[in-house]
Design a protein around this nucleic acid. Structure first.
Lengths: 340, 340
DNA sequence: CTGAAAGCGCTTACAG
DNA sequence: CTGAAAGCGCTTACAG
């Protein structure tokens, strides 16, 4: 066995070099039970000398705890980790998990299948955070395994699933209220995919507010986009701008910032002045919203808070600690910038 | 033991229900060795009925392979996963790892300490991808454990470390060449932190090209920024714009897009016309670069390729397959848009 | 305070 | 083709 066939030291090696049993070594490492000071010091010394590291796998095997949590992000399209919305949630999860001494497995599941879940269910993790939309059959499947899990910003009607969400109805309401109070009476809406809970609720509550003010938003004032990205926002404007302005709309509300930003890009290429000729408003408050010119007015969603809280709740689930609400909601807030 | 104390089935349960030994069960699961058709079918049936999943931890214990790879992103500041540059690399890693059947641990290390490394070194992963800058002592530490690892876009002079990098010199050269050929003779530079290999090389090769053209870039034409984010780009312009324009600079080159975007924001607030009054150029080609108006001219870095390749190389290292270059370089390319 | 033994859930030679 | 046994590297009662 050459130098390249480096073998990591085991507890046995430490025990033999320290002249004690491996039980004793284990005790000093985990700092439980009684150990004489002499034994402890001897063991510590050897551990440092050899740079011994306990094998986490072996430890997980007996303790039945991995100290890992799994994050599965269900997204059909890229980006995933670098997504301006989900990426922020992920960042907060990584941070919170680190401070609670969990490691994080990150998986993406573009097929929204059982595959990623299966991987995690092979006892690799103590608990699971599911982000974004996933199918009911996946939820049922996971539940079957009795592993602690929760959903962040998903779309399920299932009352039993522990869930962290943004109050999208409140956000839609705030957006509509703000635009209405700013004098807008004819607003064009770019609506993201309606099978997504967020886009659906944002659109509905926005419309509901306007309706209550006696303003009905007709079919010709809503553009339904199958995707919620920049390109689609651009395309939405490209296809509708002419008629939109003929019908004297004074503002555009998009159900997320990416759509709004895409729309803005098109308008700027056409030298349309924002907000003078038309106001634009988004939803999410992604980083980029404040970086463009004019900066985008939007509804701020507590992405970081949601990610952070998801780890705290999961930790309690794992440790079987006291009850917690099935549903944790965060209230979004209006952020007024230059585009309106 | 109530329903809530669900225990996952083990190979023993499968064996007993199928009326065979656990050796046989193991063989049919791993599909190795001989098994009679009858035995195989019986076992498969029970496995499906019970939704049995082999315990990955136990398997890792004996096979000495975890099928996990660890990604440590060394960054002092947020964002990490959602970073417009590193997030893209991470996304590509997640994707490539998935297709090679690896799971990915993602850790961030803001202190650039040994802590994250330690975690991974507890035999949790088969190999390690280190992203961004890290200290030499961390490298030395990790090397000590003989675990396969490589660096992506790091900054080390260490010839022994397997390394994937962008050719920042080439990029700096291309940027300078393009601006020069577009007629710019007096360029202002916003330079990111010089302890970062990328920013350093980009600045140097840019200057070198200009010098060769007989244009010396004086101290008053370089703004050194301690950070490379949007805010600092904005600040750089805020502090220097007046004198910059007095000295008749015609273009601004920033050593990354975020700085360039920040600079652009300030100028737009001052109603400076871009590129008519001053041209702006960045480096990286992050997503946002093409979304702003005017769209940012920049140097495209192969973030996805770098991430993808890092997994392929690590996989070969793990499997002890044939040699590979110590250093894999990607050539960046010029992307001309509207800001110049 | 300490050590021998059993066991976590698998895989892998080895007999048969 | 199949099963009994040993072992991966730890932890945890249990005697002493």
């Amino acid at each position: 066995m050459g130098l390249s066939d480096f073998m990591a030291y085991t507890i046995n090696e430490i025990a033999s070099q320290a002249g004690v049993s491996k039980s004793t070594v284990s005790r000093v490492i985990s700092n439980t039970g009684y150990t004489s000071r002499a034994a402890r010091e001897k063991v510590m010394k050897i551990i440092h000398e050899l740079q011994y590291k306990p094998n986490a796998i072996a430890r997980a095997m007996v303790s039945q705890r991995t100290n890992n949590i799994g994050v599965i992000i269900y997204r059909e399209h890229h980006p995933i980790a670098s997504h301006p919305f989900y990426g922020k949630i992920l960042d907060a999860i990584l941070k919170a998990a680190g401070s609670l001494n969990y490691s994080v497995y990150v998986t993406t599941d573009q097929e929204m299948s059982l595959r990623s879940a299966d991987y995690m269910l092979e006892k690799r993790v103590d608990g699971l955070i599911l982000i974004s939309r996933l199918r009911q059959n996946v939820i049922d499947y996971i539940r079957n395994f009795k592993i602690p899990y929760l959903m962040v910003n998903g779309s399920t009607e299932d009352q039993d699933v522990i869930h962290i969400v943004n109050q999208d109805e409140v956000g839609g309401h705030k957006a509509a209220e703000y635009l209405f109070q700013s004098g807008h009476r004819k607003v064009f809406i770019i609506a993201g995919p309606q099978e997504h809970r967020s886009h659906h609720l944002r659109l509905n509550s926005f419309s509901a507010y306007m309706t209550k003010q006696g303003i009905s938003i007709g079919a010709s004032s809503i553009y339904y986009s199958p995707l919620s990205n920049f390109e689609k926002g651009y395309q939405a404007m490209a296809e509708t701008w002419e008629s939109l302005i003929c019908e004297s709309h004074t503002a555009v509300f998009a159900t997320n910032d990416m759509l709004a930003l895409g729309a803005m890009k098109y308008l700027q290429e056409k030298s349309v002045r924002i907000p003078e000729q038309i106001a634009i408003m988004g939803f999410d408050d992604i980083d980029f919203a404040s970086m463009v010119t004019p900066a985008l007015t939007t509804i701020h969603v507590e992405k970081g808070q949601m990610g952070h809280e998801s780890v705290l709740i999961l930790d309690r689930l794992i440790k079987k600690q006291a009850v917690f609400p099935k549903r944790t909601e965060y209230e979004p807030r209006l952020v007024i910038r230059q585009s309106t």
